[in-house]
């Protein structure tokens, strides 16, 4: 299960449509398990595509929607009527809509429509399942349930799946591997852990979560901020002024004497057992710090910050 992650306009959906054969690439090839599919028309690619807004056939019942791909086959390849019916029944069970075969898409909720769209795509036994922002149009609770359910289905069927999302949490939770795209370029591919721990570029880092940008110096393989050394090591060959990117949890509130950075507390609030403190530097830059719950600071209180980790890119 591969998640295509990127900001809007980064080319995720375009890439997905090219894989499906709905759009043509300017150059490059599309390989399915080693077979070149670049020249194949969309009908012969054997992909299951789930559209962002489902694109269910409004005038057909749920069962007819799911059976569409099977009925569209040439007579020689088409399963018998009874077989189609059995397959549709199985898929309805899989998407937990067993009694809904005779309903029409307009009679279903958003989450139910999404599941029907998925069953319709699975019915043709695709080589690869392609999902375009599968949960984009759903509200938060339904979204969460569907996510877990999709992962379950994936684990059970082993279906190769590529999905598009702009939501980091969704990509990191669902995918075995994440591909981060930016402005039409593939920035990094790796497991969710890899891309989070070792982002290859500032773009990937910034997209995967909050970070603070700090002016720093690289010297002798070490990075120092305001003349004080940090635990961050510089990439080989990088010497001179660099940008250091620090996650909120890599900053620690300390006494001013031991600090890399300093400023005054602007605001602080609690969220999910953590204290989140925003510190305003003298230059006006806002730094976000995360600390364990328990400390309390009033606005305007001067604080020092120590950098416990961070990222420098060559």
């Amino acid at each position: 299960m591969l998640g295509l992650l990127g900001p809007s306009g980064s080319g995720k959906t375009t890439l997905l449509r090219i894989i499906a054969g709905l759009d043509a690439p300017d150059r490059g090839r599309i390989l399915f398990g080693g077979d070149d599919a670049t020249g194949l028309p969309v009908q012969q690619r054997a992909v299951g595509f789930v559209f962002q807004h489902y694109a269910l056939f409004k005038h057909m019942s749920v069962a007819d929607n799911i059976a569409y791909g099977l009925n569209a086959r040439r007579r020689a390849d088409r399963p018998a009527k009874a077989e189609i019916k059995r397959r549709v029944g199985d898929l309805l069970d899989l998407i937990r809509l067993s009694g809904f075969g005779d309903r029409y898409p307009s009679q279903l909720s958003g989450g139910q429509r999404q599941r029907v769209a998925l069953a319709r795509a699975l019915a043709v036994e695709p080589r690869v399942l392609l999902l375009d922002e599968p949960f984009g149009a759903l509200d938060a609770q339904v979204r969460k349930d569907l996510r877990r359910w999709l992962r379950e289905i994936h684990d059970r069927t082993g279906q190769t799946t590529i999905f598009v999302t702009h939501d980091q949490d969704e990509a990191l939770e669902l995918s075995d591997r994440v591909a981060v795209l930016d402005r039409g370029r593939l920035e990094q591919v790796g497991t969710p852990d890899e891309v989070q721990e070792n982002p290859v570029s500032a773009t990937v880092l910034k997209f995967l979560g909050d970070s603070v940008e700090v002016e720093a110096m690289a010297e002798g393989g070490r990075v120092s901020v305001r003349g004080r050394e940090t635990p961050v090591s510089a990439p080989p060959g990088v010497i001179g002024p660099v940008k250091l990117y620090v996650r909120p949890w890599q900053l620690q509130l300390v006494e001013l004497e031991a600090a890399h950075l300093s400023g005054t507390v602007r605001s602080s609030y609690r969220s999910q057992g953590r204290q989140r403190i925003e510190v305003e530097e003298a230059g006006g830059q806002i730094l976000a710090v995360e600390d364990f719950d328990g400390v309390r600071y009033a606005a305007g209180h001067p604080v020092g910050l120590r950098i416990n980790g961070g990222y420098v890119f060559g």
Binding site: Q43, H53, A55, L56, G69, A72, V124
Partner: peptide, 24 residues
């Protein structure tokens, strides 16, 4: 998008026209 869905499900352009576009 409905036509595209029909195409990804293996329908020919003409079949998609008859079964999806025309009824709509």
């Amino acid at each position: 998008s409905e036509e595209e869905a029909a195409l990804t499900l293996g329908a020919s352009g003409f079949h998609a026209f008859l079964t999806v576009t025309l009824p709509n």
